[in-house]
Design a protein around this nucleic acid. Structure first.
Lengths: 83, 83
DNA sequence: CCTAAATATACGCGAAAGCGCATAATTAAT
DNA sequence: ATTAATTATGCGCTTTCGCGTATATTTAGG
């Protein structure tokens, strides 16, 4: 359900997962957050220079939020999530 | 303990909170993540154009991770965290 | 108080974002 | 197989990063 992310790639993958779960296209999400489809594409690809604003706007558009917390010891299940 | 973030400002505030908890200066964190003290300053200030790479490097430097999850209904306690 | 430490801010630079616009390339559906 | 839908990429442009370097400004200690 929740997604753990430690790299830009994992952040992008998480966004994509939730977007698809809500049956939205990149264009749909882009409109909600006033960004181009191409920008959503780069975010989901894990482009490391993506701006924080883009990430937070995407999260808002998907009704998601971030939690910042100490790194957890990875369980077998969590390790799967990283791939 | 964990920090909820829905805006760049809240992300920055969370980073700052954890950094101070670990008794690190912006310079210390900057060295760990190969970034300037000034860059850490902007991240913590919630500069919305901060790059995702900078955020993830800071989290790694503080041994933190992100969780992406559906927005929660805010409890009284969580509301406090947002300020 | 005074000073040292920590944080915020500034300038010039090269690199790259996100933009509008447009089009490949890939995937899904019939 | 075809076609439609979705996603990835490209170009020229403006904007802003993060960098090195340096300096205000604020905060914490003695």
């Amino acid at each position: 359900m929740d997604t753990i992310a430690r790299t830009p790639q994992q952040v992008g993958a998480g966004i994509r997962r939730f977007r698809r779960q809500k049956k939205l296209t990149q264009r749909d999400l882009g409109e909600k957050m006033h960004a181009r489809q191409a920008t959503v594409s780069k975010l989901e690809a894990g482009e490391p220079a993506t701006q924080l604003r883009i990430l937070m706007d995407a999260l808002a558009g998907l009704d998601l939020e971030l939690v910042i917390r100490p790194r957890t010891k990875l369980t077998a299940e969590a390790i799967e999530d990283l791939f």
